[in-house]
Design a protein around this nucleic acid. Structure first.
Length: 566
RNA sequence: GCACCAUUAGCUCAGUUGGAUAGAGCAACGGAUUUCUAAUCCGUAGGUCAGUGGUUCGAGCCCACUAUGGUGUACCA
């Protein structure tokens, strides 16, 4: 209710012109204790301006609002001037606001005309997708959804790790031990197997590494057999990844791996050289930084002339700047790559000062396993598909235990399992390290994905049983504690979504969803809808249908599947 | 060695730009069910916000130092 804040500001400015500078919309805060009021104006900062105690000031301010019908009450508690809205005015304000489609259109104005490029998921080709790929994929997709909802033009990029010596290793291994047909038939798990076997045997036969280098060189030189292998790796990998992406409802606008930028590399290096940013150091071509930047040099070319990870990312950054003319480019990766991106962004800033501030590393904490050192080389990763399968199977067990009558048990169980896995990941701040724990990932009680989905099912049930509702409501029937609390909670939607976008932090939405769910379940426990008289039924059902809009939208933003029965 | 990040209840975490009595979930204990779906709700118990000092009318939040953990630190990605 910003308009009410503005009215308060205008009234106070009229009475006390000297505080004009210090008083703005941001001067207000939301009381933690709802008994205190709906909005609050702490008067401490006016103390020095008016040379009076905060308590005295609040008392004086209070008299300005005598007989103001917008507020049920205006009170002073220890220097806080607390305003309580007139409940009925507020109820209709919130319901009208969120029930109308124009509100969502208005939110879309936030990002109008701005493009955001989001680089996420980026698995390494020929490696099975593991639980460690989940965070980037889930967080990236959610951030994509949030920007998209706010009207930004969003470009989701899957920057596949599809180039490097590891492919030389695989090619040589497969030439020795396998065939095209076998790879095609057995898929990505077989590639993993071969990769592990290569590393195991290479420990005894170091010369294998040399073979691998030769094969990678063949690939770089465009050798036909090498290319054929490489294309097969990509096909087999994408088939496996797409299965997971479809399951998780993850989508990309561009799938351009590292190999896509290979033709640009020479030109990229030349552009940097032309701006005199490069120098030779210890035989390598590098970009050095100021001492104040406190970073080691960024390597563009090794002493043998080969390009590096950073070179490819710089080429990609240049490409994205010209291709998409973005407002922001977000890189969703592990926190361990912090220095790498700091270097790449700094080089870009030196190359094109206009790009400053456009690049943003959306870093998240590390996923660790108790007592296990995770490594693809050793083959001990936890496959993502196994996590999703185990979650689904556990749900099926619960469904059968409860004898629930669900038409499509398998599909529903999969959606609930996915909801659990996604929510488990998105419910804490990105930066937190996560220790993988089967019990926790597959826990369905309390603040979990299934809880969120369950509340949604309850909500849909009410609407279904309520039948056709009139759309008319009586604010007087929604003044009770539980309805009102729910309405206040619904009203936080706008600021929560904006905050989530501002901080690139999906957990803001997941925590909000828990608040919504709690408010709703309390409402549910205390207020019946179906079976009440027409006036109450229509009013409460209208409230619930408003909740559905907001609640469902939050689930979509996180990528939590919606189900109708569970 | 240096740099960055983290530290809040037994465990996992929230905590808006510094503001009122620091909040949830799990685990523990007690209660509610012929129900619009109990994957729910209500209650009890659980805190030196890692430590010390500083800034401020006011610090979990800002600053400095210390401790513990994590990550990075030029030819891997």
């Amino acid at each position: 209710m910003n308009d009410l804040k503005i009215r308060i500001i205008e009234k106070l400015n009229g009475a006390y012109p000297s505080i004009k500078e210090a008083l703005g919309v941001s001067s207000f805060e939301n009381p933690k204790n709802p008994d205190h009021g709906d909005i609050s104006l702490p008067c401490f900062k006016f103390s020095s301006l008016l040379k009076k105690s905060p308590n005295f000031i609040a008392e004086e301010f209070r008299t300005v609002f005598f007989n103001d019908s917008s507020f049920e009450s205006v009170s002073n508690i220890n220097g806080y001037l607390n305003f309580k809205y007139d409940k009925r005015t507020y109820i209709s304000f919130v319901l009208e606001k969120y029930a109308s489609g124009s509100f969502f259109n208005k939110m879309k104005e936030t990002g109008r005309g701005k493009t955001v490029v989001i680089d996420y998921s980026h698995p390494n080709v020929a490696k099975n997708m593991g639980i460690h790929n989940l965070r980037s994929t889930i967080i990236g997709q959610s951030i994509y959804n949030i920007y998209n909802f706010l009207g930004y033009r969003t470009v989701g990029v899957n920057h596949l790790g599809d180039w490097g010596t590891q492919f030389g290793k695989l090619m040589w291994a497969l030439e020795q031990w396998s065939s095209f047909g076998e790879v095609e038939e057995k898929g990505i798990l077989f590639l993993n197997e071969m990769y592990v076997r290569f590393h195991t045997e290479a420990e005894v036969h170091p010369e294998y590494e040399e073979h691998a280098r030769v094969w990678f060189k063949k690939l770089e030189d465009g050798d036909e057999t090498a290319l054929k292998w490489w294309k097969l790796f990509i096909k087999v990998s994408m088939d496996a990844y797409n299965g997971i992406y479809i399951r998780l409802n993850v989508k990309f606008d561009h799938i351009t791996g590292e190999s896509f930028y290979i033709p640009f590399l020479e030109d990229t290096v030349k552009k940097l050289e032309n701006k005199n940013l490069t120098e030779i150091s210890e035989g390598a071509l590098v970009v050095k930084f100021e001492d104040t930047d406190n970073m080691p040099p960024c390597l563009l070319k090794k002493s043998d002339g080969a390009t590096l990870y950073a070179t490819r990312d710089i080429a990609a950054a240049m490409y994205r700047l010209t291709e998409f003319d973005p407002y922001r480019i977000l890189y969703v990766t592990d926190v361990a790559q912090e220095l790498h991106f700091a270097q790449v962004f700094k080089v870009m800033e030196m190359f094109d000062p206009g790009s400053k501030g456009k690049f943003c590393h959306i870093k998240f904490g590390r996923l660790s396993f108790p007592n296990v050192q995770m490594s693809t080389r050793k083959g001990n990763i936890v496959p993502l598909s196994e996590v999703l399968d185990r979650a689904r199977d556990k749900v099926i067990g619960i469904i059968e235990e409860r004898n629930a009558d669900i038409a499509d048990k398998f599909t529903t169980a999969d959606k609930i399992g996915i909801g659990a896995v996604i929510f488990n990941d998105l419910s804490v701040s990105r930066i937190k390290n996560i220790e993988f724990d089967w019990d926790k990932t597959l826990s369905f009680d309390g603040e979990t994905g299934p809880h969120i989905q369950y509340s949604y099912v309850r909500l849909l049930n009410i609407l279904e049983k309520a039948g056709l509702i009139s759309g008319k409501y009586d604010t007087a029937l929604l003044e009770d504690e539980f309805s009102y609390e729910l309405i206040r909670c619904i009203d936080r939607f706008e600021s929560k979504v904006l905050q989530a976008c501002d901080e690139n932090e999906p957990s803001v939405i997941s925590n909000y969803l828990i608040e919504l769910s709690k408010c709703f379940n309390r409402f549910y426990q205390n207020n019946r809808v179906v079976g009440e008289n027409a006036d109450i039924l229509n009013s409460r059902a209208f409230l619930i249908s408003t909740l559905r809009t907001v609640y469902g939208r939050c689930m979509e933003l996180l990528g939590i599947p919606q189900i109708e029965k569970m």
